[in-house]
Design a binder for these strands. Structure first.
Length: 601
RNA sequence: AGCGAAUUAGCUCAGCCGGUUAGAGCGACGGAAUCAUAAUCCGCAGGUCCCCAGUUCGAAUCUGGGAUUCGCUACCA
């Protein structure tokens, strides 16, 4: 097998809100893929960071009476702690507010400028005369021009659904100071995305070599337009002071818009990692890099990752991503995550109920399929699936067979291929290799499913095999054989059945390891073996290998834990939410803010 | 509003380049077993494949219309 060199990223969580179950879809999806590639024996780095800049962070720090630096440092710790507790294993978790990201932001900007791809234009924007700052559209509210509903955002009305521009609002006001905004001119810097160098490149890139999922590629065609059409316009990459971010070189009072430096944060975080571990940065980011680079993202930020980002890299002498993997949103019980239904659940509140993170990892894997479709977390299904598959079927295999080996065979397994089998019946000799081989025969298809992010199909394949092992065990009736231990044939048959079953458990553990790494670790301890890799599929436990006494590897989910989770969530939300009833998932996400008193732990 | 996606058993989902009686897991029901955390195994029942029309010898699968849900329509993180 040739060893691949792979750099993997997840999108950078914004340093303004807590990690919730929706975020975790992405980090769990990515982490499974990263762990899968690692146990294949490839050289893999999984990199992420907090996205630390922008107006919302600046304003929130002000509201909380701390510096932005203090705020993002607190959020950084909270995020990393939550991820770690869900067994998300980054090789480096950093922040965009770093010298490395600053360096690459300026480097990329300067190269774009030298290439003639930066334009400076005067634009008119809303301005808060009290706060002395320009206002993004979302910071302006007013009455809907159509239905007169109050307190509507500048883009559309949540009461009647009308779409309009901010200056159509009746009695507009700044969300920050409450005063009516005025309009004001200012110079802005634009990345000339409409330049033919960008458009021609993107037309090719988005359509070739499976850089994008098919449905994403179609979407990009829509955004790019056909040949001759000019749908892409230039991208405004500057913001005026006051702003929390990096100042643009030779442009006092002008800052890079947070979305410019966010993806560059992937480079910054990796550079930071390279310095600490003596790894060649250019091998992964140089123009002609032959290593692989994958970005896992949500479908909401495709624009940035499939258009702006490749166009920036293409024109500044860096490599282009190998592929972009976009996933859908999470719904809960078939509905969007919602505060009023108490289904806006943070990572923290899940853990505080004592729910095992492996449950959620397993469940998400059972739902994920490599497309951009949304996935649903249905609590009834969640409980049934985890309890039935993971505990009832998989873990139960070890629990059923272990006692016989411990009680009658000094904890030792027998390996049929290494022992004298002359006294066994032909059926018995056949059975074990057949079952083990049947499991091993599925290795390739499971591997392919995981590689292609069809986790749900991988899981259903693994669970079919798990069912077969339980079936085999039932057919063997070891509990009957255990009553006739004086009969050498029965005794050997019992030893073979138990050892075969444990060997199958070992194989299933390898299959499941990227998905439920901590459960796999407990299984390894039970089996008394070194950490398993994919190649170990074909290295059966040797003759005479001793396993440990079985202890519970996983307990079942209790309905009361789920009830408590929803109840607790209700209280937490009541304390920390503002009362906007936004229809928009992303907006909700942005305004979910943990009071700072809660994050200073 | 325009564009796109989805709609299959009680629940969660496969199937979908047209072709034999529409599949799985869970749940329900019946049975077996008692090694295992009441876990497991066997059997059985459940579906006008959103609706209407069309193409076809034949449609869950293709076309058109409709309903519902969701998303995108950048300068919003």
């Amino acid at each position: 097998m040739n060893k691949r060199k792979i750099l993997i990223t997840s999108a950078l969580p914004y340093a303004n809100g807590s990690i919730h179950l929706g975020h975790l879809v992405e980090y769990i999806q990515t982490d499974i893929w990263s762990r899968f590639q690692k146990i294949q024996g490839h050289e893999v780095y999984y990199i992420c960071a907090d996205d630390a800049h922008g107006t919302p962070i600046m304003l929130r720090a002000e509201t909380e009476g701390v510096t932005p630096e203090k705020l993002i440092s607190l959020m950084y710790n909270e995020h990393l702690r939550d991820f770690t507790n869900f067994h998300i294993k980054f090789d480096n978790y950093y922040t965009t507010h770093s010298p490395e990201t600053s360096y690459y932001s300026k480097d990329i900007y300067n190269k774009l400028k030298d290439a003639g791809l930066i334009a400076i234009r005067n634009i008119e924007q809303f301005y808060d005369p009290v706060k002395n700052m320009f206002l993004p559209d979302r910071f302006i509210k007013g009455e809907c021009p159509k239905c007169s509903a109050k307190d509507q955002y500048g883009d559309n009305c949540e009461a009647c659904g009308a779409a309009y521009a901010p200056n159509d609002l009746i009695n507009p006001y700044s969300v920050i100071s409450g005063t009516p905004p005025i309009t004001k001119n200012s110079e802005h810097f634009f990345f000339r995305l409409s330049d033919h160098r960008c458009i021609d490149f993107l037309r090719c890139w988005t359509n070739e070599a499976d850089h994008l999922q098919p449905e994403v590629a179609n979407k990009m065609q829509e955004w790019l337009g056909g040949a001759g059409e000019k749908k892409l316009s230039d991208w405004d990459i500057s913001r005026d002071a006051p702003y929390f971010g990096f100042e643009i070189p030779d442009a006092p009072g002008k800052y890079f818009y947070v979305w410019l430096d966010a993806p560059i944060g992937y480079m910054g975080s990796f550079k930071n990692f390279c310095e600490k571990n003596n790894i060649d940065f250019d091998e992964f980011w140089g123009e002609n890099a032959t290593t692989e680079l994958y970005h896992f993202i949500g479908k909401d930020i495709l624009y940035f990752h499939a258009l702006f980002w490749p166009a920036m890299l293409k024109n500044t002498g860096y490599r282009i991503p190998t592929k972009i993997f976009a996933h859908g949103f999470l719904t809960i019980n078939g509905e969007k995550m919602s505060k009023s239904r108490n289904t806006f659940i943070t990572a923290r509140s899940y853990l505080e109920q004592g729910l095992d993170p492996e449950y959620l990892r397993y469940y998400y894997a059972a739902k994920l399929n490599g497309t951009m479709e949304d996935i649903d977390l249905n609590f009834v299904d969640f409980i049934a699936r985890v309890n039935s598959d993971l505990v009832g079927k998989y873990v139960n295999i070890a629990s059923r067979a272990a006692g016989f080996l411990v009680n009658h065979f000094n904890c030792q397994v027998t390996n049929l291929s290494n022992q004298n089998t002359t006294h066994l019946s032909p059926e018995l000799k056949k059975f074990k290799p057949n079952l083990v081989e049947e499991l091993l025969k599925s290795a390739d298809v499971i591997q392919a499913y995981l590689e292609n992010r069809h986790y749900s199909l991988a899981i259903s394949t693994i669970m079919t095999l798990t069912g077969k092992v339980n079936e085999y065990w039932d057919q063997q009736k070891p509990w009957e054989k255990a009553k006739q231990l004086d009969d050498i044939t029965q005794r050997d048959a019992l030893h073979i059945a138990s050892s075969t079953t444990i060997e199958c458990f070992r194989i299933l553990t390898i299959f499941l390891k990227p998905i439920v790494p901590e459960l796999a670790k407990r299984a390894e301890a039970f089996l008394n073996i070194q950490p398993l890799h994919w190649k170990d599929l074909w290295n059966a436990l040797p003759q005479g290998h001793k396993i440990n006494t079985y202890r519970h590897l996983m307990t079942r989910i209790n309905q009361t834990q789920i009830d408590a989770l929803i109840d607790t969530n209700k209280q937490v939300l009541g304390l920390s939410m503002d009362n906007t009833s936004s229809q928009n998932n992303i907006k909700i996400q942005q305004y979910i803010v943990t009071p700072i008193s809660k994050i200073i732990l």
